[in-house]
Amino acid sequence: MSTEITSTPFAVAADAVVVATDLTKIYGEGDSEVRALDGVSVSFPKGQLAAVMGPSGSGKSTLMHILAGLDHPTSGSVLVDGTELAGLNDQKLTLLRRDKIGFVFQFFNLLPMLTAKENIELPMKIAGSPPDPEWQATLVEATGLSTRMTHKPAELSGGQQQRVAVARALLSKPAVIFGDEPTGNLDSKTSSEVLALLRRAVDEFGQTVIMVTHDASAAAIADRTLFLRDGKIVRDAGHLSAGEILDTIKTLE
């Protein structure tokens, strides 16, 4: 079911949520020039869970940063839910992130002084819009932490904290959720709980998730697996098993 697209022309799916066209990102100049991204074009349709993999320095983090509007490409264009990111000022980018993008971080980044429930509600509070209570209840139930909502992050395990972080990203029903090594700081058991939640977000709630990961077992739950090397997409595959992923990584290194 895997298809090599490196040679095929770039086609944008009609229901694409994130579309990147010919992205380059160059750090430094002259001899010290580094092409972190070298002409990347890719689109992500709605309701897909995509994993972006690649060795260190392949450009996968840079790609995610640019797709999420956290960094600017040297050239190329990014559309998020139909909005072109190039040329947006800080205020507009902030509003875009607030309304259309959710984030799950490697180090959870929960606020230590807030309870789990308050952390989940935080983005909505910042936006000044009330959360949908039914949706919130569904999410809390999905985290499996209904009884722990009044606890502070310090009283939760890493996996529990990350599930709270996923719920936080989902509460505003963003167009897309970006995960930055969401299991990078977890052991395999707690990883799988978090991954299950992300899978459920896509399958049951129709969300779109793009995550950068090193972890083959994390990528193995994805509908689609992208491999980057030297700033280029070298393989764009559908669902792969952990074994297939490891094999691909070996060929890349």
């Binding site: 607030r98 980044n109 910042i126």
Partner: peptide, 14 residues
């Protein structure tokens, strides 16, 4: 710094 950055990513304005 990290806390403020996180708030910025989840949509807090300057």
């Amino acid at each position: 710094t990290r806390e403020f950055a996180m708030l910025r990513t989840i949509g807090a304005s300057r």
